[in-house]
């Protein structure tokens, strides 16, 4: 099964909808709720990063019997220092975003914690591709 989403970078009100759809779909397919929660959290973090930092992007979710892959591509500013970005508490979010409760510097750490596989390809000024993998 493959699901594709386009994430609008300017629409804060709809941010997180792709994650909500994936969560609902996985629940309907009968996946264990703790696994669904892990996937939903990791994907929501990645989706919000696209909205907050990269002006949106595209998501492709591929589901097999044993593995779930979430591929997220954006044409945003890229990540200058991935090691720094992986540190809990580090964030480049602006004040407006922080006031909404984002920008805790937990996005990438949460994605790593809740997934079985996290790969990031990024080029400054070109964009970022994030791959999240989960064993089912």
């Amino acid at each position: 099964m493959t699901l594709c989403f386009t994430v609008d970078g300017n629409d804060f009100l709809r941010a997180g909808e792709a994650s909500a759809v994936v969560k609902r779909t996985l629940k309907q397919l009968g996946l264990e709720s703790s696994l669904v929660r892990k996937i939903a959290i990791a994907m929501y973090e990645a989706e919000m990063n696209m909205v907050l930092h990269a002006n949106g992007g595209n998501i492709k979710v591929t589901l097999s019997d044993t593995y779930l892959t979430i591929q997220m591509m954006d044409t945003g500013p890229g990540i200058k220092d991935i090691d720094l970005a992986m540190q809990e508490g580090y964030s480049t979010a602006n004040q407006k975003i922080r006031e909404l409760g984002f920008g805790a510097g937990m996005g990438l750490p949460n994605m790593k914690r809740y997934s079985d596989e996290l790969k990031i390809k990024t080029v400054v000024g070109v964009g970022t591709e994030v791959l999240l993998g989960f064993k089912l």
Binding site: L13, Y44, E45, G101, F102, A104, N110, R113
Partner: peptide
């Protein structure tokens, strides 16, 4: 802080916050 809440809260928790927006 939404990321912390996601990581640390438990299913069934009542969430106390000052964040009154859709996210």
């Amino acid at each position: 802080l939404l990321s912390l809440v996601m990581a640390r809260s438990k299913e069934g928790d009542l969430w106390l916050t000052v964040q009154g927006h859709i996210n």
